[in-house]
């Protein structure tokens, strides 16, 4: 991963401008924190960089390639956006195995190791539906990191986690950064942003501004 560049990115839905002329260049191997109120546009920005929505105007370049022209989503990306959604009647391991089967890039052992890394038991025979909110969130994090992505996009990754869980996620993110992963993290929790981010941004009513506070 070299860089992500937003060039005058705008997104309007039903005549309402959700992202307003966003231009920023993000270098690789850093943690970028995005802070802002509900509805400020953080999630929409993340969806845009994942290729899940098309900007109304402007371009997003990833490693020099233009999103939606040269590729439909960033190669090798790990994502959590909003509440974790999995197949309810499968176990955590089976869920991750199904997702991993799309790329066929990692082994069962690597899946198990990702699950253990977030503090869950890969042999737990409970189905996802029976998981607590915290366990669901941990599984979502395991899903995001299991294929060793170059880019991690995490929207509220510490939601529903207890203190121990939050500390574990922070530790994992720092380890991922050390591996060279570029991490975009959005949170209501200012402490997450303060502690983890190399560069901090505030989203306010669809506009992006860098801040140092």
């Amino acid at each position: 991963m070299k860089s992500i560049e937003f060039i005058n990115v705008k997104k309007s839905i039903k005549n309402k401008e959700i992202l307003k002329n966003i231009s920023v260049k993000l270098e690789c191997g850093k943690i970028y924190g995005f802070f802002g109120r509900n509805g400020s546009g953080k999630t929409m920005l993340f969806r845009a960089v994942c290729g899940l929505i098309k900007p109304t105007s402007g371009e997003i370049h990833i490693n020099g390639k233009t999103l939606h022209k040269d590729m439909s989503f960033p190669e090798n990306v790990g994502v959590i956006i909003e509440s974790p959604g999995f197949w309810e009647y499968y176990t955590g391991f089976k869920n991750l195995k199904l997702l991993a089967s799309i790329k066929r890039k990692i082994s069962d052992e690597q899946i198990r190791s990702s699950i253990e890394r977030v503090g869950l038991n890969p042999d737990d025979d409970r189905v996802f539906k029976k998981y607590s909110l915290g366990m669901k969130q941990r599984l979502a994090i395991a899903q995001a990191i299991m294929e060793e992505p170059d880019l991690l996009i995490l929207d509220e990754p510490t939601n529903a986690l207890d203190e121990q869980g939050i500390n574990l996620v922070r530790k994992i993110l720092l380890e991922e950064k050390k591996r060279g992963t570029t991490i975009l993290i959005a949170s209501h929790n200012k402490e997450d942003i303060e502690l983890l981010s190399d560069v901090k941004f505030r989203m306010n009513d669809g506009r992006l501004e860098q801040f140092n506070g």
Partner: peptide, 13 residues
């Protein structure tokens, strides 16, 4: 689609 799209369509075209 609503549940899994984010996870699936960031892995495949």
């Amino acid at each position: 689609f609503g549940r899994n799209a984010v996870y699936i369509f960031t892995r495949t075209h």
